[in-house]
Design a protein around this nucleic acid. Structure first.
Lengths: 203, 203
DNA sequence: CCTACCGATCGGTAGG
DNA sequence: CCTACCGATCGGTAGG
């Protein structure tokens, strides 16, 4: 494990718990069992630490979505299901990073912010493209396809804020449930023919 | 305008922009054109300021939802539409307070946190109750009603993070769009019979 | 005896 | 990779 990885792992836990402004560079150095000066040898500023964390998280999410899409069927319905599965799975498996992405992005400024904005746009454009495809083929019948991307991403991005690994549903079941919600929201033609993934749900 | 109201208005803008830990009591006092000591005469701590802000915001949201429900029709479909309309309207009209509620809640501890948690549970339980009613009457046919509350609240709560008053849709149109998303997600029996509220949507 | 409020300063810590 | 620091500012409180 490289020094950089250790710093980022420590910073991830601390910032997810106490926020960007609630975490000091001394806190991070201490958690990584190094000195403050050494931390500054790897990151020019506290903002740079956050940029690295959010970029890594977004890269991971994007990689997962693309991997799922590579093995998905050709229809927009199948591709949307794959993308939602990937997002929900990421939200559960990388919960801390997903929470951080959601809550601490606002503290970024300048070019670091622009880089993360661009990475987010890439993710959103994948959903937007699949929605447009599905509307074109008639698979999705929602009269409001343009606003659906935000609604879908909002649902997926909120999962890490309440998900608990010891909950009543496995992450795979949770992904299935969210696929159903999303396809129903898009008024997918196939949604009523789907089989429920599970009959048990959290209260 | 009472002194307390002036402090809270200043704190709301500052904390929504820079976060709880990024806003100092001196910043708040300066923005409210008073002294730090006077601020401490009204709030025992910075946390107490945040508690007051989040409680006020939640009270406002709850009041709006209840007011809409009072004039709504009796069906679960109409009541869900009313609740979503109220939430989206609040998100747009009280955007700063809504953003704060979403992002800064995590910095609360102790009994102040518990009070806000309880207020949130009250709001969520309204949605949960309407969903249960609709499932009971057969209006909502989703196989996963128990997870739908979180998905619905997540969509509504995310609106203030991207909404712009100068966007292509009026707040009323935006509310209509979200009502359609939510009812579709619940697989409402009436959803395909609905009329689109608008043909224009943001990109 | 209370409130509302002041200028000044407390012990510690922030990012760098 | 460390000790030793900086200008400033932190949340909170002093006496009056």
């Amino acid at each position: 494990m490289s020094a950089r990885t250790r710093y980022l792992a420590a910073a991830l836990d601390l910032m997810a718990a106490d926020g960007f402004n609630g975490t000091s560079m001394r806190d991070i150095a201490r958690a990584a069992e190094t000195s403050l000066s050494n931390l500054y040898n790897h990151f020019a500023s506290k903002s740079d630490v956050l940029v690295a964390l959010l970029r890594d998280a977004n890269d991971d999410l994007l990689r997962r979505i693309r991997a799922e899409l590579d093995t998905a069927g050709p229809s927009a319905t199948e591709r949307m299901a794959a993308a939602v599965r990937a997002y929900v799975t990421f939200s559960g498996e990388c919960q801390t990073a997903a929470v951080l992405s959601l809550s601490e992005f606002r503290y970024l400024r300048g070019e670091g912010r622009e880089a993360v904005v661009q990475a987010r746009d890439t993710t959103e454009s994948i959903f937007r493209g699949v929605i447009a495809d599905g509307v074109g083929t008639g698979e999705f019948r929602t009269p409001y396809p343009d606003g659906a991307t935000r609604a879908i991403v909002s649902i997926c991005a909120a999962v890490p804020t309440w998900y608990r690994p010891d909950g009543p549903l496995s992450l795979s079941e949770l992904a299935d449930v969210h696929v159903r919600y999303v396809l129903a929201m898009l008024e997918a033609a196939t949604v009523t023919a789907q089989q429920p993934a599970s009959t048990a749900m959290p209260a």
